[in-house]
Write a protein that binds this DNA or RNA. Structure first.
Length: 413
DNA sequence: ATGCAACCTATCTA
DNA sequence: ATAGATAGGTTGC
């Protein structure tokens, strides 16, 4: 962890409340970031390899530009003489855009907390969750892969797409980094069979057919569906004349257009709207969000007993009415809180341990009461397995196992 | 308009 | 140890 020479990195002052890459880059938005043992996140992006590291004061960044590679794709003479190589300012601009740094996340969290007690309760453990501005095509492909799937396998599948169909940009830590393949690369004969052999399952056909459909449209078709408001500043009142719980007309139009693609249903369409097209009000209702809607927002009964198309829209409208124009951002915070990969943050905090006896246990992130004691106990167990794989903090593990035994006795007492 | 089985696969769960 | 459920769903009947 400590063998990083950060002196050679560019840095940007930013607080963990405004951006937490450790949460944002692995909460199921983007599937290509990889973290090494030194805590450096890397990904091929826009013809370069980008690396990130964060501490409480700064976001550190650096990129391996095309010029550092063996064979530049374009001769230097084709560039204007003043800008012969990508500069670090260029990278900063790219970062600012990709990480979507314009909106003030702290203000937004405050707004959502003021209008929703449940958000106020859950959010403090999951600050700095920011919606990335990803490429729309990449988001589309990634979320077509996401159906009936888990984040680990989705990431693996996207990686295979890049390896097999994306241009090689270079190496880092002896590993190849490929850029994301363009639509025409996936619209070739034989792609479906190849993807099946690579383990994509029934999504192989969806990807091939959607790639063909996108390739047959004008090049900028996806871009025409984008939110034209360049940076979405979220601090203005959300009850403007153009605002409705259904969302803005441009968002509805984009959503409808995306539904015509193979393998794209309402949930995937909303993921692309939110993370690829800049529509902050898009609320993807997946299995997690549906659970949340039932548990914390009184859905799941009467008219909205099951997740039909009508219920899907009702859930989105409810959250948009509650959280406002950046409802999709707030949704992602609660979604992240529900992910198993982050369940360790809901673990009860051990105040003191003496001779194997738990003296005090403080619950965080849940209601009081018998029901939740059982819930937390389950979360603790999953948290242990998770940590054992990733961090290997043996002392913490021992303590938490004792917590498990302690709380287990209270099961259904 | 709602309900339902089928769809690929790796991992978790009981 | 092993069948069943689940993981950021969509499709077609």
């Amino acid at each position: 962890m400590g063998a990083l020479n950060l002196a050679e990195w560019q840095k940007l002052p930013i607080s963990l409340s405004e951006l937490c890459i450790n949460t944002t880059l692995r909460c199921g938005q983007s599937f290509r970031w990889r973290k090494n043992d030194a805590g450096v996140w890397s990904m091929a992006l826009h013809n370069r390899i980008l690396s990130l590291h964060q501490d409480p004061q700064y976001l550190y960044y650096r990129s391996i530009p095309p010029s550092a590679r063996q064979t530049p794709p374009t001769p230097p003479s084709s560039h204007p003489p003043s800008i012969s190589e990508p500069t670090d300012d260029d990278t900063l601009e790219l970062l600012h855009h990709y990480l979507n740094l314009a909106p003030n996340l702290t203000d937004l969290y405050q707004q959502w907390s003021a209008s929703d007690a449940n958000f106020a309760k859950k959010a403090p453990k999951f600050t700095g969750v920011r919606i990335l501005k990803q490429d729309a095509w990449e988001a589309l492909v990634g979320f077509i892969c996401s159906s009936n799937n888990n984040i680990a396998r989705i990431s693996q599948m996207v990686h295979k797409l890049c390896i097999n169909y994306g241009p090689l940009l270079g190496h880092l830590d002896d590993e190849p980094y490929h850029d994301f393949p363009p639509p025409h690369a996936l619209a070739q004969d034989g792609v479906e069979a190849k993807l099946r052999s690579l383990g994509f399952g029934y999504r192989a056909k969806y990807l091939y057919r959607t790639a063909c459909m996108i390739s047959s449209k004008p090049d900028n078709w996806l871009e025409t569906l984008r939110n034209p408001e360049s940076p979405t500043l979220g601090v203005e009142p959300t009850s403007g004349s153009d605002w409705a719980p259904e969302g803005r007309p441009g968002y509805r139009a984009a959503h409808t257009a995306l539904l015509t693609l193979q393998g794209v249903g309402p949930k995937v369409a909303d993921c692309v709207c939110l993370m690829g097209l800049g529509w902050g009000e898009a609320v993807p209702v997946d299995t997690h969000v549906w659970q949340i809607a039932q548990r914390d927002y009184k859905f799941g009964k009467g008219k909205h007993a099951s997740l039909t198309k009508a219920t899907y829209d009702a859930v989105g409208n409810r959250f948009r009415a509650l959280w406002g124009r950046e409802a999709g951002w707030a949704h992602s915070v609660l979604f992240t809180a529900d992910l198993r990969a982050f369940s360790e943050r809901l673990v009860a905090k051990v105040e003191k341990v003496e001779e194997g006896v738990v003296i005090g246990v403080k619950m965080e992130g849940g209601d009081e009461g018998e029901q939740d004691v059982v819930k937390v106990e389950e979360v603790v167990e999953r948290g242990i397995k998770r940590e054992a794989e990733e961090e290997g903090e043996s002392k913490v593990l021992e303590v938490e196992e004792k917590v498990v035994r302690k709380t287990k006795r209270r099961r259904k007492a």
